[in-house]
Every structure is written in C-alpha cells, then in structure tokens.
Amino acid sequence: MAEISATPDAALLAREREIASRHMGHFPWGSVAWCFANLACWLALWPLVILGIMPLWLGFIVATLNISLCYLPSHEAQHDIIGRPGSKLRWLNELVGHLSTIPLVLPYDLAKLTHMEHHKHANHPEHDPDYSVHAPNALAAIWQSFVSRQPRADGGIKSYGDVMQKMDTPRARKALTIAILYQLFFYSFLIGMAWSGLALEAALLWWLPQHIGLTYIQFYLSWAPHHPGNGQGRYKDTRAWRSRFGNLLTMGMQYHVIHHLYPRIPLMRTPRAYWEMRDVLEARGVQIDGL
C-alpha cells in the first residue's frame, strides 16, 4: 500500500486504464438475456393471474421482483455497452434500452439523458438529477423516495421533466413528450383495468410493484453508492461499500465506483475490475466502506 501511494498520478492512471481496458468491449449476454426474460416474465403474469392460473399474491411478488430488476439492462444500453453507435448490434442496444424499463414506466430517452447528466454532475445539488435522493440514513432515503413522488414535490424522478425543460434541445423535448405519453398510457391502463373489474390485478401487478421497484432502484442505485453524497469529482462522488445483503440483492452496486470511473465496463464485470483496481482506488482516496 505504501508503495502504491507513492506511485505518480500518471502511473496510477495508466494502471487503472489498463485494468479497465481488459473489462471493456465485452458483450453483456447476461444483461441482454435478463432484459428479455424479465419482461417476458412480467408480461406473462397478466394472463396467468387474470385466468386464475397463478394466485394474485404470487403475481404481486414476482411483479415486484420484475420491476425492481428491470432498470439495469436499460442502464447497460444507456452507456452503449451492448452496441456502440454505428455498430452491427446497435439495434439490440436500443431495443434493450427501450423495452426493459417499460414496467417501470421510465422511457429510455428520458432515462439516458438524465443519467448522462448524473454522470457529468454526480452529487451536484443543482445539476445532478438524482441529487434529491440524498438522505442522512437508509430509512430517510426510503422515505425521501416516496416523498419525492408526491404530486407537488420537487426532485426524484419527477424532476427529470425539469431537467429536460432546462436542456431544451430537440432530443430533450422528444424525451419529455415520450415521457408524458408513457404516463398517460400507464394511468389510462390502470383506470381502464380498474373499471373493467381488474382493479386488484392492476394494482398488484403494476401500480404497487412500480412504487416498490422505484424505491428499491433509487435506494440501491442512487442513494447507497453515493452516500453521504458530499463529494464531487472523479474519485470523490461514488463509493465502494459492503452491504449485508450481498452483491445480488444490491444489484451489483457495491462496485458502483467502477461504473462511474469507467461507465462502459459491463455491470457483471465491475466486481472483477474492482478487485483488480482496488489498491489504485485506495491510493486515489476513493471512499471504501468495508469492501
């Protein structure tokens, strides 16, 4: 450790880049399969539950899992990990990006534009679209996620619209229009189902799981890896941390620091990249909490 601390910055950066380069450019089969399997599973719940083949309580549990898990394949697409612009697999990248977050009612364009802003301005009180998730502790973060979704609340996913309006580019305007259409479809669907005698099914297969999923995603993707969220800059805005719930339940976010340093490393390779890079990160002063 003492040896690496004394290593010049340029050498540290070179080592960091060499490790990262070994993990970039790999096709994320797992995330692509995850997108289609997860969406197919969630869609299948509707006929299974409505036809009485699956009990509603079980459908609710599976739907909650599906929606909690649906964001990350889109996240890989947002960073062009599945197919770079102009590549043969670009269509697959965009398809995964668009399809995977449908259950979350989060359109790809909006997610991508706001996520890029998050990377540019992580932890900045005014410019980070995810800043409002910051909270002093885990319980407060969960509560904050619900509060930020109230009709006249500021922040949270509701602030994404404000970010688009501020950007005011043709792409941002298009993203905002699509987001409004998503919302209209979602609520029209819920209301239509409810008045067709399927209110409980709509509530327990989409509405409630979407709220739980959003909270789970905001907690593990936005709050936990950036907590306490008072640092900005390359090695200061994200931490490595050990969760008592392990890597699967935290959706790989213990290693989120790797993602912020090298966003094109596929999610499933971030643990390996972290362990190879750990001493460099420590030398750089990255916050490492028990990992």
Partner: peptide, 28 residues
Amino acid sequence: LIELIFKFGPLVFGLGFLVPLFHALIVR
C-alpha cells in the same frame, strides 16, 4: 387536455383508479 389531466392528476387518479380499487377490496 393533457395539461388539464395532469393538473387534476390526483383527483383523476382517486376517482378513476382508487374508487374501483377500494370497491374491489371491500368485495374481495
């Protein structure tokens, strides 16, 4: 029309979704 729907979103949601949801809960 869309602006109006969003402006009265909570009321629309309450009447459009929560009313049949509560009814279904009472019956179930």
